[in-house]
Design a binder for these strands. Structure first.
Lengths: 258, 258
DNA sequence: ACCACGGTTCGAATAAATGGAACAGGTCGC
DNA sequence: GCGACCTGTTCCATTTATTCGAACCGTGGT
């Protein structure tokens, strides 16, 4: 396999509980000869992708990746708008907010605004979840056509819980509903007792789409509060859509969102 | 050159005002034939390092890097401690706080806690600056031996302003002073009218060292306030040092820090 | 229709990656 | 102190991926 693929595989080996890797770690995990791995890691270090801890033969992720990733999430007008709106809603409601993007069939958490409640819902930055079983995920999928959604999911859905869509038909039903009202919710799907309400906005000019949601313990929130959260999110999305020229929200009558 | 080096070079081409790259962009910038670049970018996309914007032939940084970079800065006990302390100080003083590491001769901003003042000091996450001319940088350099500092800087220093150390001798003087008192300040060095006060903490077990600082407009802060900031930072560093077993702060008498 | 421009494909020459074996350094247990 | 063992590195002939120029395709402009 090419050096590049191997390098990417090495990067993927780093996980939250594996922040350092050794030559044998990688060799075992990837089934490559030690000699190749030794050279590969050294090459990755020399090119800045990795660093090795001072005296030790352990490798960590290099600062280059941190810098690049940082650039990647900055300077996006849409992100700035979404963050500002979400921050305001989070401060107002004291709940936790997330901004996510679609990456294949997963949602990837790009930003988090921790709530001030005692019980916080914590999905760490950079973590993934199946898009079809999350509020943010379905808000994003609803922006795609049904055909696209189907082709994204060639295999049968594997719902993480009973509340998640069990198959493609019920997923498309929920997406259709999301398209009608503009927002989307998930109750006790991926995580028990977690209720999330999400909206999605798109900046066609930059080919960027984000979903943002509010997450809170389902048991603590009344119907009325939930309604006001929907209102806050859809209003925010509408303001953003206005600024970036997202036609999607223009076609949604305000009364349906309430 | 090897594929890996070329890939790293491509990643380095992404800057804050260059979030998308095309084949010819890269070919021109790196002086490589278009065909090679075309293959390289495609390979990088296939391995997850890059993504190309839907219909267009433009490439962006892939989500893999974001995930990896996110891991990289999480789960560090020292970072958690430093962040908690700095957050408290920032809320207290309403100024901006930064956490940085040393990367070669540069400091790299890992975390930022924006202040609540009207005039905020903004150095974006992931940005670099010459270590010798910043408070955080010198706090980190002070942890190194003079020999190490000298060998890091083979070339004459290029101070960004008159207040920065002009040569190695005056840099070492300031480092020596930092080692005596435990903290470090930079007044109008890298950025005009910006005053920063920094301390550094090290977790030897994990081979991690961070500096954190408070930055504020120099003109707005009295001698007395500055003193109390020094106190807050050194107290915080001492608490962290206690927890992670950083011997450095044990040898510093508390009265010298005041 | 033509041209200019950006991207891709092709194929032979080249340079780089590969992996087994041998080597080096360290630690552990006896 | 010694050997067994584990880790990482170096070496080298072999393999194979990568390279680069040139030809090829689409598109957008005039």
């Amino acid at each position: 396999m090419s050096t590049l693929e191997n390098a990417a595989s090495v990067l993927r080996l780093f996980t939250a509980d594996r922040l350092e890797l050794t030559v044998t770690d990688v060799a075992r995990a990837l089934g490559l000869p030690k000699s190749s791995v030794s050279r590969l890691l050294k090459a990755m270090r020399d090119s800045g992708l990795l660093t090795n801890v001072a005296g030790t033969p352990r490798y960590r992720v290099g600062t280059l990746l941190f810098e690049i990733a940082q650039l990647h999430q900055q300077n996006s007008p849409l992100m700035d708008l979404a963050e500002a709106e979400l921050r305001a809603i989070c401060q107002d409601t004291r709940h936790t907010g997330y901004i996510s993007i679609l990456d294949g069939t997963d949602v990837l958490v790009l930003r988090m605004h921790p709530g001030r409640e005692a019980l916080r819902v914590v999905t760490p930055l950079g973590s993934r979840a199946a898009a079809f079983a999350t509020a943010n995920g379905r808000a994003l999928l609803a922006r795609l056509g049904n055909d696209k959604v189907r082709s994204l999911h060639p295999n049968p859905l594997r719902p993480p819980s009973a509340n998640a869509p069990a198959d493609m038909t019920s997923l498309l039903d929920r997406l259709a509903q999301a398209r009608r009202v503009g927002w989307c919710e998930a109750i006790n799907e991926a995580i028990p007792d977690v209720h999330s309400i999400a909206v999605a906005v798109e900046d066609a000019a930059n080919a960027e789409t984000f979903a943002f949601c509010l997450s809170f313990p389902d048991s603590k929130i009344s119907q009325v509060e939930s309604r006001s959260i929907v209102r806050a999110l859809t209003d925010a999305a509408r303001r953003i859509a206005e600024k970036v020229g997202d036609r999607y929200w223009q076609s949604l009558p305000a009364e349906l969102a309430a």
